[in-house]
């Protein structure tokens, strides 16, 4: 996302501070992405719908407090959504569920010209289970949401270098488990 686009989005958000109906543009633009992001951490459509609606309600109620920090407005939505998901799991005190798109995982493996096979895929899933939650979160944001490190840092309330470090460590852990190579940036 270019700086101009980020600015334009911020202007829409700024406008919705005065006229809350303007928020609808952002809602329509980001609903799908936030829904998928939450669904990837719950694997339950009804629950995702509730948390997603709660996310946008919180954003709407706090639109007056939002301050521009050079990241897309969507990063703010991701941050609220992440907090809502964490709150839900804290209340329930159960293991977090990460439900990943199989097609995307295949894509990531294929990007590295690895010989794709079912066994490799299931091993990857097994190894990911051993990763701490915070590492899976950065991997999800980086490889499934395609977020830049500065956005990941904003969403997870950490420094950019911290976000990079956590991503590299997570990938290194997976690499050492079996000789799987995933590019650090997750892109071709």
């Amino acid at each position: 996302m270019s700086d101009d686009e980020i600015r334009q989005e911020y202007e829409v958000l700024d406008q919705s501070k005065k006229e809350v109906k303007a928020f609808g543009v952002l809602y329509e633009k980001y609903f799908d992405r936030i829904f998928r992001f939450i669904y990837r951490q719950t694997d339950d459509e009804e629950l995702t719908a509730d948390l997603c609606s709660q996310t946008f309600l919180i954003a709407m109620n706090n639109v007056g407090k939002y301050e521009f920090r050079g990241v897309p407005v969507s990063a703010w939505f991701y941050k609220i959504a992440g907090n809502e998901v964490n709150k839900y799991y804290r209340k329930r005190n159960t293991a977090k569920v990460f439900s990943l798109e199989e097609a995307r995982v295949r894509e990531l493996i294929a990007q590295e010209n690895e010989d794709y096979d079912e066994e490799r895929l299931f091993k990857l899933v097994e190894y990911m289970k051993d990763l701490p939650t915070d590492m899976i979160e950065v991997l999800q944001l980086r490889f499934f949401e395609g977020k830049e490190f500065n956005e990941i840092a904003f969403i997870l309330e950490m420094t950019e270098s911290g976000a990079k470090m956590r991503t590299y460590r997570a990938l290194d852990r997976l690499r050492t488990k079996f000789n799987l190579t995933i590019k650090y940036d997750g892109k071709e």
């Binding site: 609606s53 990460f98 990943l100 798109e101 199989e102 939650t133």
Partner: peptide, 26 residues
């Protein structure tokens, strides 16, 4: 780790569309 990892099919946009409800949010 203590997380559960699942693999699933891609979510259909039409499925997500069912949950769009801006008037209710307002």
């Amino acid at each position: 780790g203590k997380n559960e990892i699942k693999l699933r099919r891609h979510l259909d946009p039409a499925d997500i569309l069912r949950y769009h409800n801006y008037p209710d949010l307002m």
